[in-house]
Each structure stands twice: as C-alpha cells, then as structure tokens.
Write a protein that binds this DNA or RNA. Structure first.
Length: 435
DNA sequence: TCTGGGGTCCTAGGACCC
DNA sequence: TCTGGGGTCCTAGGACCC
C-alpha cells in the first residue's frame, strides 16, 4: 500500500478473440469463440458479440455452440497471440522495467518507478500508453486500473471494461471494495466462496466480520491471513518483474478414452520430447518427473518420481514417466495423460557419471508418419495458397478444406474450397503476412 | 458426446536426520 | 520403555489463476 495511485493493472480486452477479429476482417463485429473445438473442448475466449449470447470462458464448447450456433469457432493461434503480447509488454517496459506479466494478456506495472509519472496526470499518462498499444498492435484495446495496491488496480481494471480506465482514489479503496462479492478478491474461487456462503458470508463487508483467527481456522493459515487483510484492502505486495519457472508440463485430453498401454507409451514419448525441447530451449533441467492421468470417470491422479540429478533428456523423462504409468490401472481407459517436470535447475547436468566416449543417450524412436497422422487443417489456422495468396481455414472435412482469403490488411475476402492434399496449399507460420 | 492446458501456491503426512 | 522437537525432502491432492 502506498499513498498514491501508481500501480497499474492492464488487461487486454477479449484478447484471443480480438486478435482473430483483427486478422480476419470478415469476423469483425461478429461472435468469435476461441478454444478447444473438439467434442471435449472448452472456451478460452469469447468476443463481446458472443458474450451477449451468454458465452463465457471455461464453458464447454458444446454449450457455446448451442447458445451461439452462428459464431466462428476457432482453434487458436498462439504464435500470433505471443507476438501481440510481446508488443504490448514491450510498450509497458518503455515506462519502467517493473512490469510483471501475469499471462499473455495481463500485467502489473509500477508507474511510480518512472520519474515522469505524476499522479495528477495519470489519465493522460495511461491514455498515451493505451493509444500506443492500439496503434502498435493494429487495433487491440485494453482495460486498465490504477490504484495504490495490486489488489485494487486489478479490481479497478474490471470496472470500465472494455477499453476503459478506472483510477481508484487513494483512501477510497475499502469503501469501493466493501459492497463487492467476496469472489471479486483474486484467490476466492468456487470452493472458498461456498465455504463462506455456508457461514452467511457473501460480500467483502461480511468477510470483515470474523476475526483473523477465525478466518485462519476456516480457510487455513495462508488464505485466512491473506483474506483478512485483502478484505480490508490492505495489500503491500510489490510488482515483481521476474519469476523463475517452477515446472514445465504437457498434457492432452483425448477425443476418445485410451486403454491401450502401448499407445499410451507412444504418447508419453511424444510428450517427453516436447517437455525436453522446452527445457533445452530455456537451458534448464529438472529432477522430479510427474505424470497426470485422468480416468474415464474424470478421477484424476498424479504420480511422481525424483531422480538423483536433474535432466533435460527426452529419453530419461520418457522412461521415468513410463515406469510411473506402469503402476496405474488404465483398463477402463484414460481421458487425459500428461507429463511434467519440476524441481528445476537453471543449469544442465554435467554428466559426472557418464562415459563420454560411450554411446550418446538412447534416442527415442522418431514418430512414423502414420503416428503423426495427416496434416490437420483446423479452423482459424493461417494458410497460404500458391494462386490465391494468404488466408485462413474456415472449415475442413471429407478430404476438403475451405479457406477464406483475407488478412489483417485486406477487406473481407472470398472463400474457396480445395482438396485437403492440394499441393498448392500450405501452412503459414507465426503471423507472417505478405506485404 | 458434461467438465482444456499450462501454470502457481498451499496443505498434510511420512521418512529421515540431528 | 514411553513419548521431545525442529528442519528438510518427498509425494499427493486440491484450489485457484488466465
């Protein structure tokens, strides 16, 4: 807590959906839903047009389809989202190095660290940042809260959404927070809300009634202590610009439950390779290997094993994960399988115990073409065609793929259908748009 | 066709050590 | 021969976040 409103929370509006509308002119002003598009998918982001029809994040895609059948359902292009995020975070870091990203679309910024920041001129100061963000991202907007603490800055950014700014006047924090639902406080999720509701607590004001000791008894030491303070808008957390990665993991929910162990082991190989790749890219390694399994009935378990030393080897991760899977009953089928590693070290094990003249670590068999399957043309994906230029996949099936030829910089474009194996049609990567 | 994917943090019990 | 403690590491599960 400080005496001036100088902590900013920024939240890009309907981020994934907005990037899609920017890059797909025919979808502007229309409902767009980004997320899992398979039978077991859930919504990651809905555009405001889709929210008007009751579509929400974390809703099952099947339900979103029922509510909003004419929406565009897109699988998501994370390279494009990462690129837009990079531009936004870059602009924020021109204000100060004290930028704490919470995700691709959210960050805290400590404005007080900038010598030119004057709390009296906060509206203009933030306004010029927002204008730059919209210009540099070619159309994205954000909502911002500025307050004396992280808690109230985050609460503030919700107030004038979308494309809004709310400055919480210093001194008014507790009064603004009091009438809100307890769930407005980050950290109060469905389980905590239900426990509080049974005690007759629904608003933040009501949360202030029990003593700290009572809250600790009800919610445990950490949540109890922090909720007692946060409910009174007491928050002295600082903006932390860098955090060490604590774990790296990959998981997949299958369209159909899998009970075939040899197939599950092939999937573990693939996942271990992905995890190892990401470890190597970041120059880190880890000691504790964890598998996550979700059974047909949604019962979920983790099993972990800790190695003598850290590794970034796909073969070691895979062998460890397979030995953990061997202890699990998969006879009724797994709905989800995941492989992760934690206990990370920012160095790679120098092979003290291995003979460098001996063979390299055993390679995992590369995947065969049949294991990889055919190229999947998923809705929303960027493609390019030798004759028609750049566009995106509108839909596919029955050996055909339909493409709309338009980009960020064109008017809404025409639609053409091709054979799925048309050699003139190709994947387009990472927001590459022909000039 | 119920319920994604990638994370963080917390709790709690048992092993083990001093 | 009757019940110490504290600290660390490991495992598992759960709540929560976007």
């Amino acid at each position: 807590m400080r005496s001036t409103a100088s902590i900013m929370h920024l939240d890009l509006d309907a981020f994934f959906a907005s990037v899609e509308q920017r890059d797909k002119p025919s979808l502007r002003g229309k409902p767009v839903i980004v997320g899992g598009i398979g039978p077991r998918g859930v919504v990651a982001t809905a555009s405001y047009e889709a929210r008007l029809r009751g579509v929400r994040s974390a809703m099952r895609t099947a339900e979103a389809r029922a509510r909003c059948p004419h929406a565009a359902f897109l699988g998501g292009r994370f390279d494009a989202y990462r690129e837009a995020s990079r531009i936004v975070m870059g602009r924020l870091r021109e204000v100060t190095e004290l930028v704490e990203p919470l995700s691709l679309d959210e960050a805290f910024v400590d404005l007080a660290d900038n010598p030119d920041f004057d709390p009296e001129g906060v509206v203009e100061f933030v306004g010029s940042i927002l204008a730059d963000i919209t210009e540099r991202t070619e159309g994205l907007t954000a909502s911002v809260g500025v307050a004396s603490s992280k808690l109230m800055a985050k609460i503030g950014s919700e107030i004038n959404k979308p494309n809004g700014l709310f400055v919480v006047p210093p001194g008014a924090e507790a009064d603004i927070l009091g009438p809100m639902q307890a769930t407005a406080i980050p950290g109060v999720g469905p389980a905590t809300a239900e426990r509080l509701r049974r005690l007759g607590i629904q608003t933040v004001e009501e949360l202030r009634v029990p003593s700290e000791a009572e809250l600790i008894r009800i919610l445990g030491n950490s949540s109890g202590r922090s909720l007692w303070r946060l409910s009174r808008a007491l928050d002295d957390r600082s903006v932390v610009p860098f955090r060490e990665t604590k774990s790296v993991s990959v998981e997949d929910t299958f369209e159909n439950d899998i009970s075939d162990r040899s197939y599950l082991e092939i999937i573990i190989d693939r996942m271990a390779r992905k995890v190892a790749e990401r470890l190597k890219k970041n120059g880190i390694s880890g000691r504790t290997v964890t598998i996550k399994i979700r059974h047909h009935d949604f019962e979920t378990h983790t099993r972990s094993a800790t190695l003598i030393g850290p590794t970034d080897s796909a073969a070691t991760l895979s062998a460890t994960a397979k030995s953990l899977l061997a202890q699990a009953d998969v006879s009724n089928g797994l709905r989800l399988l995941g492989v992760g590693v934690s206990g990370l070290a920012d160095w790679v094990q120098d092979d003290l115990f291995t003979d460098h003249d001996a063979a390299e670590e055993p390679e995992i068999e590369p995947e065969s073409a049949t294991q990889r399957g055919p190229v999947r043309w998923y809705p929303g994906m960027d493609v390019t065609h030798a004759d028609h230029g750049d566009g995106w996949v509108w839909g596919s099936g029955l050996g055909q793929v339909t493409v709309r030829f338009e980009t960020r910089h064109t008017p809404p474009g025409p639609v053409h259908t091709f054979r799925a194996d048309d050699p003139a049609l190709d994947v387009r990567h990472a927001g590459t748009v022909k000039p």
